[in-house]
Amino acid sequence: MQTENVNTTARETDLSVELSGLRLDNPVIPASGTFGFGAEFAEFYDINILGSFSFKGTTKEPRFGNPTPRIAECTEGMINAVGLQNPGIDAVVSQELPRMAKVFRKPVIANISGFSVEEYVECCGRIDSEPQVGIIEVNVSCPNVKHGGMSFGTRPESAYEVTKAVKAVTTKPVYMKLSPNVTDIVSIARACEEAGADGITLINTMLGMRIDLRTRKPVIANTMGGFSGPAIFPVALRMVYQVAGACGIPVMGCGGVSSARDVIEMMMAGATAVQVGAMNLRNPYACKEIIEALPQEMERLGITRLRDIIGIARN
């Protein structure tokens, strides 16, 4: 009887959304850096239930990242200063993608990082020919080492430059993943749209820190790191609302999402799809539980087609 009910619900509610021509069964997407290349989570559940997932931020060269400790606990969240540990684009294409194909059959989101415009271009050009990749997500929170280390995502001009350069080397939809650590998120998002971005992902982590009271030193070896988790949800929601209102391209909402209700709220703010980050680390089943809870939550709220509520809070 229980199964019948679930099936009935599934027929009545439509969770599908569309991102730049890519149809997703549901809007739930594990965020980059919290889901590796999928294999670790595939040991917990069949990850093909996901809308998609954004794989570990990949750079041109292999990286170890920052020294440890690079994780700190916070109230309703955590700080990480992993520093983009990844095996480099060559190994991702030759080893991780084939390995990923065994556990995930849907198009994946390739998260690309770089420390110069050239690096972004080279990685995106390289991933362009990979059929498994449905969307390229460009992380512009990295420092531009050729220009004083200022993050690409903190100035509209540099965000524009990266977007333009990347768009020239790929036919895949390009989503720019923005940092919240800026004075005016809308101007950055608009610059990306003007440069031809197909969509925006936001927000990346917020810069934070913790101090160990006993050692009297920062907990994180790198002093500061990215704060994420349920605590940042209202900030992320606000920024999604602002950007979705100012831009005509789809937004993937990200930041502190931990329940089906958060997914719905993020979509009401204007997100077409919703990424789940830190919660995957506390509860490896987080995305599965959210996807399973969505139909019931929609029914409770009188929502039949999930995509109908995108940006509805503005109307």
Binding site: G33, T34, F35, G36, E40, F41, E43, F44, K56, F64, G65, T68, R70, I71, N80, V82, Q85, N280, L281, R282, P284
Partner: peptide, 10 residues
């Protein structure tokens, strides 16, 4: 995470 998902403890 404790199961290889976040690369925090490398």
């Amino acid at each position: 995470c404790g199961f290889g998902g976040c690369m925090g403890c490398s």
